Amino acid sequence: MILTLIVACEVGFWMAILTGLVVRYPLRRPRLGAALLVSAPVIDVVLLVLVATDLLRGGTASWQHGVAAIYIGFSVAFGHRVIAWADVRFAHRFAGGPAPVRLAGVSYTVACWKDVARTGLMVVIAGGLTWGLIVVANDPVSTAELLVNARILGVILVVDVVWALSYTIWPKRSPRASAAVES
């Protein structure tokens, strides 16, 4: 049941973003498009309430509850960036906006480290939500599986740090520099 709710909220989140961008650019209704984009985080609140309600009613915590916490943490930490990424592409395609900038070198490395900070925020939020779900359920036996989230979040953070570190050591080349080296 919870997995179905997570999938429905994920689909709803992306539909709100896609609909908001379509309404904003091709249909040229920027205010309505912005309202639809703002509705995307409301879907996360709905998911959080549904998951907490399930545990309050005596549901046994499972990996799906943990995924819900991670999903909400991701949405909060990365949601604005994801929307901005899509917005630039829609503006370029449908409203004559500037082409998206492809980062390379130091600018790409800096972006990677900013993502590490966002991932850290996601870990804090998802960890806090997981802890909150454990407290709300108030049953250590039924919530034991949620403790796996700590390891999952740790792996996610370590992978992101290694990713950023690799681009610090070996910066990403610009497409033009890569073409010149291959010639």
Rank of each mutant, 00 (worst) to 15 (best):
T53E: 08
P30M: 03
R28Q: 14
L36R: 01
A61Y: 00
A164P: 08
G128E: 08
A86N: 06
G79D: 13
R28N: 14
T60G: 14
A40Y: 10
A104F: 06
L36T: 04
A40S: 15
V51K: 11
I70N: 00
G120M: 03
A179K: 14
S75T: 08
M122Q: 12
V155C: 05
P175D: 10
W170N: 14
M122I: 04
H92G: 06
V38P: 01
Y108A: 03
A95L: 02
H65W: 12
W63T: 15
A77E: 05
L27W: 14
V22G: 03
A117H: 06
L27H: 11
Y108P: 00
L21W: 02
G58K: 05
I2C: 01
I134N: 03
V67P: 09
W170F: 15
P171F: 12
V23W: 03
V76N: 07
W163N: 11
G79Y: 09
V76M: 11
K172I: 02
R118F: 03
E10S: 10
E10Y: 08
D115G: 11
A69V: 14
V155S: 00
Q64T: 15
H65C: 10
A117N: 04
V106T: 11
A77W: 00
D139K: 05
G96V: 07
A150F: 13
T60R: 14
A126Y: 06
V135Q: 10
V161A: 11
A179E: 13
R57G: 13
Y25I: 06
P41G: 07
Y25E: 08
S62M: 12
D115P: 02
G66L: 10
Y25N: 01
A95N: 10
L146W: 08
L27N: 08
A179D: 12
I6C: 14
R93S: 13
T53A: 06
S183Y: 04
H92V: 03
D44G: 15
L153P: 00
I43S: 06
L5R: 13
G128K: 03
G20E: 04
L21V: 01
P171H: 04
V158Y: 01
A84H: 09
G33A: 04
R57Q: 03
V148H: 12
L37N: 04
G59M: 02
A126T: 10
V159S: 09
V101W: 01
T53Q: 07
P140Y: 10
V88Y: 03
V76Y: 10
D44T: 13
T168C: 12
V116N: 02
Q64H: 14
L27K: 09
L48M: 14
R118H: 02
V51I: 15
L133V: 09
L157P: 00
A180M: 13
D44M: 14
H80R: 11
V76I: 15
M1W: 11
A104R: 04
A61C: 09
F13Y: 15
G128Q: 08
S142Y: 00
I83E: 00
I169L: 15
R118N: 06
W63S: 14
A52L: 08
V159H: 00
S107R: 07
M122C: 11
V51S: 06
P41H: 10
T53H: 06
M122L: 12
G97E: 06
V11L: 15
L32S: 02
S166V: 12
G128R: 02
I156K: 01
V116W: 03
D139Q: 06
L48H: 01
L147F: 05
A91Q: 09
A68K: 02
A35R: 05
M15H: 11
I6L: 15
T130W: 04
